[in-house]
Design a binder for these strands. Structure first.
Lengths: 204, 204
DNA sequence: ATCTATAATGACTGACCGGTCAGTTTCTGG
DNA sequence: CCAGAAACTGACCGGTCAGTCATTATAGAT
């Protein structure tokens, strides 16, 4: 039965998610993932080739959901700005809301020195690029419709993701004032009081 | 001789920096740090209590430099906006330029589940907060002088650091167009084309 | 009820690595 | 030149954990 197997795999991924977001990849043991899923260690190896494969499967699963959320927001009949706002809150209340997810994806920062890291990078990076592209698409649309300034869409996408990340982390640290809106607002309006006449960042 | 000892310690930190930014904390072995510094493993333990202590010493050292750079920029007779711009480029050409540094500090994202992680967090977080405070100070000054809008200084600081991080990572990935200026420009001007009349993000 | 195939188990192994410490080398000052 | 101190060394130990596989349990077919 194919579905039964898929369900089992998913259950393992969920267990892995719980452990990895709590402890990080390197401090996660396969045995704990197994126990958390209610199976023995050997069973994990029936569904995943090795430990890195669990991580890769996990990232695939998470980013798939993140991308699905983007697609969903893009389908709504709203302005690009509203799209970005709603994506922000959709993510913030979904899987991406776990700050551990950010740490999870942070592995991308490490230089790829050995075989395992190369494998990680090879799988994670294309997904991240795909996400950036999707967001850049929203930005581009906003520019064409005149809602956004003619900025570099990719940079704006990178900035958007950073803002989201920043929001998650700071919210995690102090659940005080609503910094989420504050950070979103900064993304939209910038920090400067005036001098908004130009398009490019001065010349030279 | 006290200085001799300090020098040795510094040499070890530099070796640790090289290895850790390349491989990340968990894949770094004490033995490799020792070899990279040209000493035997045992020697490392004359200067650091254990492996976590190396990491903590490293973070202290790096953030000390980052803070010193802020202080230096703050001392210059320039506008808050220029301060932020010059800090950006000072960092980008200094120790912070290594993308591995960002990965290094990313450990802070992991939840503190065990004693070692708690130790990490206890040391790293205050430093990060200190940095955020310093930048928030610049922002506050800019608001008082009317150069910046009346935003929440802390949020702006968090956003600034995120922007820097984003810049580093994307520059590392594609040395194509100058995304640095692009991202800085976004931080200052935001993305919206107009509707700049208000101060707060709507009401609600 | 019995047989077979498929799934699951967990004890075991080998590699790795943090930390130790008895032994060795280097330094210092008399 | 020597003796004692201080610095350094690296073989060794113990614990951990990824991955294996012989054995056992389960499900489905007849």
């Amino acid at each position: 039965m194919k579905t039964k197997s898929k369900e089992k795999r998913l259950a393992l991924l969920k267990a892995a998610f719980a452990v990895v977001t709590e402890k990080g990849y390197f401090e996660t043991t396969v045995d704990e993932v197994a126990r958390r899923a209610g199976v023995a260690k050997g069973t994990v190896y029936l569904y995943f080739k090795d430990k890195p494969a669990i991580y890769i499967g996990l990232v695939d699963w998470l980013l798939e959901q993140a991308l699905a959320t983007i697609a969903e927001v893009v389908a709504r009949p709203i302005s690009p700005r509203r799209r970005l706002e709603e994506l922000f809150s959709s993510w913030a209340s979904g899987v991406m809301s776990n700050p551990g997810v950010m740490a999870l994806l942070s592995i991308e920062n490490v230089n790829q020195i050995n075989a395992v890291m190369k494998r990680f990078k090879k799988h994670v990076l294309p997904h991240i690029v795909e996400m950036e592209d999707a967001i850049a698409g929203i930005v581009k649309q906003g520019i064409e419709q005149g809602e956004f300034r003619p900025v570099e869409p990719r940079s704006a996408a990178v900035m958007y993701l950073s803002a989201f990340r920043a929001e998650l982390l700071s919210a995690n640290r102090s659940p005080s004032a609503r910094p989420g809106e504050s950070i979103q607002e900064l993304f939209f309006y910038g920090i400067l009081a005036e001098g908004r006449g130009r398009t490019k960042h001065g010349d030279r």
